[in-house]
Write a protein that binds this DNA or RNA. Structure first.
Lengths: 196, 196
DNA sequence: CGCGACGTTGATTTGCCTCAACGATTGTGG
DNA sequence: CCACAATCGTTGAGGCAAATCAACGTCGCG
C-alpha cells in the first residue's frame, strides 16, 4: 500500500479529486519491482501498461538504421514512462524501455485506464492535462534542438534536471541530447578548465 | 454557416457526438478571414484563441538569439495552429504565428473551450485525444531529428505532406527541418540530376 | 518599371562525428 | 575474495555534413 502513497500525492498535487474517486484511480495500479537492465517494453510488442516510477530510473530509446541507439526519454522518480505511441494507439512498440537501476513502479492497464476515463470526468481531465503537458514538453525539446548548440543543450539540461546527472549515465544523456559521449566529455572538461 | 461545415466534419470524423453537443461545440467558434502576412499571435501577448484552418496556410516560428527564425509548425487546411504552450497555460507567447496566404479560420476562445470541456464529457475526451495525438506527432519529429540526416528528413517530409510543398515556401520548410534554404536547394537539384 | 521576396550556386569554414586507444569502475564466475 | 571482463568515461587526430558567406537570377506585385 505504502508505495502507492507516492502516486497518490503525484495525482492530488495536479488535481483535487473526491476521496472516493482518488481511491478508485489509485486502486487500478499494480506495484512492481524491476531490476536494473530489465526491459519493460520492447519493439514488436504492444505497450499494454502505462508506468509511473515510484523510485528508480528508466530510459526509452530507438535503434537507428546504422545500429546506434537514440534516447527518446529519460525518467526518474515521480515521472511516467512508456512507448507513448504504442500505449496510446495500442500498436506495436518501436522502442525499448529499460531500467537503469533497480526500480519500483506502479502500472495501470490500458483497459483499466479507459474505463476510469469513461466513468469519471475528472480522470479524463487529468489525462487530458497530462497529454497537454507532454505535448508542451516535447515542443520545448524541439525548439531546443532547432535553436541551441550541443553545448547549450547540455548546459540547459543539467540546469533543468540536476537530479538526472546523478542517476543517469553519461551516454544516456548524450544520446538524449543527440550528441556523442565523446563530445559531452569535451564539454565537461572545458567547463572544469574555465572554473579554475 | 457553410464554412463551419468543414470544422464540423473535422470533429465528427474523429468522434461521434450527439447532434446537440456537436452543435454547441461548433457554435463556440467564430469564422475569421486572415490576410497573407498577417500575424495572429506575437510574443509577449497571450494566445487567447485556438485556431482551426478552414482554408489557407500558417507558420509558427521562434526567433533565436542570433536573429534567425526557426519554424515550429506548418499548418494548412484542416489543421490546428497556435502557440500551443501559450494557449494551454495562458502565458505570454514566445512565438509568431503568421498567415502564408489569405486564409479562413475558425477560432474558439480559451474560456469557451474550458466551459465546453467541463460541461460535456465527450468534448473533454475530444481534446484529450487531440493532445495525445499532438504529443505523439511531436515525438515522431524528435525521433526524426535524432535518427535521420537532413536529406532524409526532407524526403520524409515531402512524402508525408505532399500538400505542403505547393502551399508553403521553401524557406519555411527548410527552417522547419532545421536546415538552411541553400542546403534544401542542393538536395533538390541533386534529386533532379539523378532522375535524368 | 523597380523593388522586395524567394530561390540558386559555388567557395570556404566549422561544429560535431568517427575512429582509435587507453584509464577507471563495476560486476561476476571460479 | 580475487582476477578478469564488461561497462563507462576520457583524450586526441582526422574527417565530413551542413552552415556561413557572398553573389547572382527570377518572379510577382505595388
Amino acid at each position: 500500500m505504502n508505495e502507492l502513497e507516492v502516486l497518490k500525492q503525484h495525482i492530488s498535487k495536479r488535481m483535487s479529486l473526491p476521496e472516493e474517486e482518488l481511491n478508485a484511480f489509485v486502486a487500478a495500479f499494480t506495484v512492481k519491482r524491476i531490476k536494473k537492465r530489465q526491459f519493460i517494453i520492447q519493439p514488436e510488442f504492444i505497450a499494454r501498461v502505462r508506468t509511473f516510477i515510484i523510485k528508480g530510473a528508466f530510459r526509452s530509446y530507438v535503434v537507428g538504421a546504422e545500429g546506434t541507439d537514440h534516447t527518446i526519454q529519460l525518467a526518474i522518480d515521480d515521472w511516467w514512462i512508456s512507448d507513448y505511441s504504442s500505449y496510446i494507439f495500442q500498436k506495436p512498440a518501436t522502442m525499448f524501455v529499460v531500467a537503469l537501476e533497480d526500480s519500483i513502479v506502479a502500472q495501470i492497464e490500458y483497459e483499466a485506464e479507459q474505463r476510469l476515463k469513461r466513468e469519471y470526468h475528472d480522470i479524463e481531465t487529468f489525462f487530458r492535462m497530462a497529454a497537454e503537458g507532454l505535448a508542451a514538453y516535447h515542443q520545448r525539446r524541439i525548439i531546443a534542438s532547432l535553436t541551441r548548440t550541443a553545448e547549450e543543450r547540455y548546459n540547459d539540461f543539467i540546469a533543468a534536471y540536476p537530479g538526472m546527472l546523478e542517476k543517469v549515465p553519461q551516454y544516456a544523456i548524450a544520446s538524449y541530447l543527440g550528441v556523442t559521449t565523446q563530445f559531452i566529455s569535451k564539454i565537461r572538461n572545458k567547463k572544469a578548465a574555465s572554473k579554475s
